[in-house]
């Protein structure tokens, strides 16, 4: 754990070395998030509620989603790069160290832009999420579980590159898909799509379920969320470990 924290410290220092670009990227991300908030405010000017979701609930969902994104894509920025890194043979450095390569890779890079989300999410929660002590605790729990699901999912689809080859395009598509699906209230989706959101593209666990928990704590829902977090996290680790057997270190044998 101490090793992970030290690595993490270096990543933060590295992100911080170019201060100008740091603040620029963070403010761009904040502006981006504000546009989305504006979208929802405008949307609910015209539409009162959609299947039980009103403005304040959707803003709560958005606060959780940005927090989750800040953790999984900002702090653990390599989570969505696993496919690219494997295809490009860039796991070598991590494999030469006596720690788990996945743990090292995840904390190895911080994405400055997406750190903006990590500021934005909690601030939005404080402003629009009616924070009480209890709600705040659930907000944190839900965001952490959501982040575990998202990181596990991203690592898993990235690690697929080790099995199917290519340069990780499927991971990019999966990444964009899960984020956009998680940006909208889970209940607007019907039948098959909804089933998908609870299984193979687990967007519901990233934002929808945590939001529901903050508004209405149910032990069963909480247990389901926690289970999903464990399942997806271990799925990511498992697939990555298995994939390492097939890692080819970027050896360029095509057209040899």
């Amino acid at each position: 754990m101490r090793i992970i924290l030290s690595t993490f410290k270096n990543s933060l220092i590295e992100a911080w070395t170019n201060r100008r670009s740091f603040w620029l990227q963070v403010s761009i991300m904040l502006a981006n998030d504000l546009v989305w908030v504006l979208f929802w405010i405008l949307f609910f000017e015209r539409v009162s509620t959609v299947r039980g979701w009103d403005r304040s609930r959707v803003l709560l969902l958005f606060a959780i989603l940005t927090t989750v994104a800040g953790i999984s894509l900002g702090l653990l920025a390599n989570a969505r790069k696993i496919g690219q890194l494997s295809a490009g043979g860039e796991l070598d450095a991590a494999l030469a160290l006596p720690i788990h390569p996945l743990a090292f890779l995840l904390v190895r890079r911080v994405d400055t832009g997406l750190l903006g989300d990590l500021f934005f999410g909690p601030i939005l929660f404080v402003l629009a999420g009616e924070p009480t002590l209890e709600r705040t605790a659930i907000f944190i729990f839900g965001s952490l579980c959501g982040a575990a699901v998202l990181v596990g999912f991203l690592v898993a689809i990235g690690a697929l590159t080790l099995f199917i080859g290519g340069t990780g395009e499927q991971a990019d598509l999966g990444f964009q898909t899960i984020l956009i699906l998680a940006s909208y209230p889970v209940d607007v989706f019907g039948g098959a799509t909804k089933l998908l959101l609870f299984t193979s593209v687990p967007a519901a666990f990233i934002s929808g379920l945590p939001t529901r928990l903050v508004d209405d704590w149910q032990w069963t829902t909480a247990a389901a969320l926690l289970t999903a977090a464990l399942v997806f996290a271990s799925l990511g680790v498992r697939l990555f470990n298995l994939g390492l057997h097939r890692y080819s270190s970027g050896a360029r044998w095509t057209r040899a």
């Binding site: 030290s6 590295e14 070395t17 170019n18």
Partner: peptide, 15 residues
């Protein structure tokens, strides 16, 4: 982006 010494300190932890 970092100095070599900063990486060395991290590696020392890792080892």
């Amino acid at each position: 982006q970092l100095t070599a010494r900063q990486t060395f300190r991290l590696l020392a932890r890792i080892y």
